[in-house]
């Protein structure tokens, strides 16, 4: 059995996690944007856009105000020890969410899909969305991703074969789907984007796998050589599209491509593409006893 969870300090730790996710971009994401800015010609529109984005990131961090007003859908991946109540953790996450809205770290973003009423506190059916896993450690790990609606709207899912693209049920077919998806997205998802790809699974687990890729550090190298090669090839190819920052044109259309697979049924071959805007807001909390560390 685990020690009883210190509710107050856990809730405060989750609140701080939300604050970091919304107002302070991860170092690897910011560095990728900085590098991209250096690659765009001086005085080009793409360069100006990326420079302003970097200015905005710095100011948001300094003021602790949201990088983007669309603080998105909040999704949590919680890993916890045996015996820890799931309901308790979910309730504390909801409480922290309500507090984060009051402190303007989050926008009230949960709209009842049937009535159109905004719940006002970001809490509603499947919102925030929390998934749980168990591990052998005594600590609780909480991963949070804030994903804006604009980038979610240009995320997509293909069922192979796809005759219109000449895409069959292989990695060549996957490549074609990703090229098509990013080309269709243009600047709508706030390019340059981070692309998470899930191969296989079903319509739910395929997209879940795609979104999980977005949690991988940018420097992370795929352990499967075929996927490592496909990630590199897509990164190169997508940046030849010329869509550029905000869709204004330029060399930088994507900042990262990460791919994972899940077992599928023989009948299905889905390619799920999670498009994440440049404001790739994901943060991790490790809570052990009353100590909280953040990454």
């Amino acid at each position: 059995m685990t020690a009883p969870l210190q509710e107050k300090s856990f809730q405060q730790a989750v609140l701080h996690l939300i604050r970091l996710a919304s107002t302070d971009l991860s170092a690897d994401v910011e560095e990728a944007i900085r590098q991209a800015a250096g690659n765009e010609p001086v005085d080009s529109t793409g360069r100006k856009v990326l420079d302003l984005i970097l200015e905005n990131i710095a100011l948001a961090r300094k003021q602790a105000t949201p990088i983007c007003q669309d603080t998105g859908a909040c999704s949590y991946q919680v890993t916890l020890p045996m015996g820890q109540s799931l309901r308790q953790v979910e309730r504390l996450i909801q409480e922290a969410t309500r507090e984060a809205v009051k402190k303007s770290f989050l926008r009230p973003n949960a709209v009842d899909a049937i009535t159109g009423t905004n719940s006002g506190d970001n809490v509603g059916t499947l919102s925030p969305y929390v998934t749980f896993h168990e591990w052998d450690r005594a600590a609780i790990q909480v991963k949070l991703m804030l994903k804006g609606g604009g980038s979610e709207n240009v995320s997509s899912q293909y069922s192979l074969p796809q005759a219109s693209l000449g895409a069959g049920r292989d990695l060549e077919g996957v490549h074609k789907c990703v090229v098509d998806a990013v080309n269709r997205a243009q600047g709508q998802g706030c390019a340059p984007g981070f692309i998470g790809v899930g191969i296989g699974g079903d319509r739910v687990t395929g997209m879940l796998m795609a979104k999980k890729q977005l949690f991988r550090p940018l420097a992370d190298v795929n352990e499967l050589p075929v996927l490592r090669d496909l990630e590199a090839r897509l990164f190169r190819d997508l940046n030849t599209l010329g869509i550029g920052p905000m869709g204004f044109g330029g060399k930088t259309t994507v900042l990262g491509v990460k791919i994972g697979g899940a077992h599928r049924t023989p009948a299905s071959f889905f390619v799920s593409i999670a498009y994440m805007c440049w404001a790739d807001r994901r943060r991790t909390l490790l809570f052990s006893g009353e100590e909280a560390t953040y990454a």
């Binding site: 856009v49 302003l52 984005i53 200015e55 905005n56 100011l59 948001a60 003021q63 105000t65 949201p66 990088i67 983007c68 007003q69 669309d70 804006g148 604009g150 600047g187 706030c190 905000m246 204004f248 805007c277 440049w278 404001a279």
Partner: peptide, 11 residues
């Protein structure tokens, strides 16, 4: 066209 995500700066 404003720049998407430039929320703090535009505010």
């Amino acid at each position: 066209h404003a720049i998407g995500g430039l929320a703090t700066l535009i505010a």
